[in-house]
Amino acid sequence: MARSGKREKEEQQRFESACVEHLDALYATALRMTRNTSNAEELVQDTYVRVFRFADSFEWGTNLKAWLFRILTNTFINNYRHKVHERRYLERVATEPIYDQVLDSEARKFASDPEAHVFSSFFKKELDRALDELPDDYRTVVVLSDLQGFSYKEISQMMECPMGTVMSRLHRGRRILQRELIDHAVAAGIVSVSEVEQKKSGREPTDLKEFRRSRENGS
């Protein structure tokens, strides 16, 4: 009896230290999810409270990092995300059916430009900001995929949604980022406005920011 008690204690210690090894990655992701240091700290702490409480449901041999991130994602979705902001943004994206085609041609133009391949530190900052401005569901998928390297399947388990939903959120999220980068490239003069405007001819910009920018450039 005493022997099995000792083994259980060792098992518990091994489990706890393995969990704490992922603290930095969980914190970085929580920071992306909540976009605020004090909320991120609180989210990480809540996550670990649940990790230690449900320690028994983890099985060795399965992916510990994925299990921890699943609890983090769950805690975030249930307690932290801002539903109102999300709905508004999703509606906006959904009402732009022609946007995909236009973006594709813009992105091809942008990608073909050798200058655009240079991601300067300026660009990095822009990417950082654009990522933070993505709606929660899109941002979470992009962060879990690109920052933490989880597979579509693992993400679908973390977010408790079908793989198809993960893929469409990732696709949408990246397109928004791509668009922000192109807009930024245009604003910074890396890609000339006329080239992009040509592609857009016959179309009123549906995005307010873009609309205003095109008005400024036109006047």
């Binding site: 098992e11 409480r53 449900f54």
Partner: peptide, 8 residues
């Protein structure tokens, strides 16, 4: 540590 991690 509220949970216990027993041997599976």
């Amino acid at each position: 540590r509220t949970g216990t991690r027993r041997l599976k």
